[in-house]
């Protein structure tokens, strides 16, 4: 899941975090035309894991999500997850995503500069991956020979 490795059936607080996170990701997916079938399927699988299969096709309002954020215990990790998904696959945030992430950050009392730091860090990861591809392009199929 998003914050832990188990589905947190027996931990209501953790379950709530996962639920709110999934709601936010489903809301964000609707803001763009980016989501692929695979991503949509992944969201449906997460909803099923949380025993809320109808969530994947529910209409969720921004106000509802912002209102539930008071239950988030790890706001930075939560925001990191949202930024990570929003920046897939090409590191671009559209205007709707920027507004939503900014409002989530403000609701969680996180400085916008911190959001920018998180986004920059995630973009740097993509840059590193692209640089690795450029350096090791000719041997990428044989990566397993020296992998960790």
């Amino acid at each position: 899941m998003f914050f832990s490795k188990s589905d947190n059936k027996d931990n209501p607080t953790a379950y709530l975090q996962e639920f709110i996170c999934l709601q936010a990701l489903i809301f964000m997916a609707a803001l763009t035309d980016k989501p692929t079938e695979a991503y949509q399927a992944a969201l449906e699988a997460c909803a099923k894991n949380l025993h809320q299969p109808e969530l994947a096709s529910a209409e969720i309002s921004e106000q509802c999500i912002l209102g539930s954020l008071q239950n988030i215990t790890k706001p930075l990790l939560f925001l990191k997850k949202l930024c990570q998904e929003a920046l897939e696959p090409d590191g671009v945030l559209n205007d709707a995503e920027v507004l939503f992430l900014g409002r989530v950050a403000r609701t969680l009392h996180i400085d916008l500069e911190r959001v920018e730091q998180i986004c920059d860090w995630l973009i740097d990861e993509k840059i590193l991956a692209e640089r690795a591809h450029l350096i090791f392009e000719s041997e990428e199929d044989d990566e397993h020979e020296f992998s960790n």
């Binding site: 671009v92 920059d120 993509k126 840059i127 692209e130």
Partner: peptide
């Protein structure tokens, strides 16, 4: 990708 760095705050301020 480099063009996308350090743009969040300004973009949010301009949109909001």
């Amino acid at each position: 990708l480099a063009l996308r760095r350090q743009t969040f705050c300004v973009k949010y301020a301009l949109l909001e």
